[in-house]
């Protein structure tokens, strides 16, 4: 699974969270988006995670694309990630 975060997604989060993209190798193939977000929150967002996740979903204003399609069409949090999936987060916020 490839995860890509557009610049400004982690607005104000400081340098350690401005990851660009990373390959994601996980043994369990049956992760859903909810688990992926939780993993990002714990492992990548050291500072102010609320700028990326709110509750158990992404902050409003951040778009999620799974294989270049709107995640709203894919079941959002319930989407089961598959091998070779390409997940992209893009911020629509000002200065993002």
């Amino acid at each position: 699974i490839r995860v890509h975060c557009g610049r400004g997604v982690f607005r104000g989060g400081g340098s350690q969270t401005s990851c660009d993209s990373f390959e994601f190798h996980r043994g369990e193939p049956s992760w859903d988006m909810k688990q992926l977000l939780a993993w990002i929150r714990v492992n990548l967002l050291k500072e102010r995670p609320e700028l990326f996740v709110q509750g158990d979903t992404v902050r409003p204003g951040i778009l999620v694309l799974i294989n270049d399609a709107d995640w709203e069409l894919m079941g959002e949090l319930e989407y089961q990630l598959q091998d070779q999936d390409n997940v992209v987060f893009i911020s629509t916020l000002h200065g993002g």
Binding site: G8, H94, G95
Partner: peptide, 27 residues
Amino acid sequence: SSKEITFYNRLFGVESVFTPSLDTKAP
């Protein structure tokens, strides 16, 4: 809407450049 624009740019390779704004780091 900003969603349409973001999708269009992504799907059809429109380049944009990140520039910080006055309030980028503000709460």
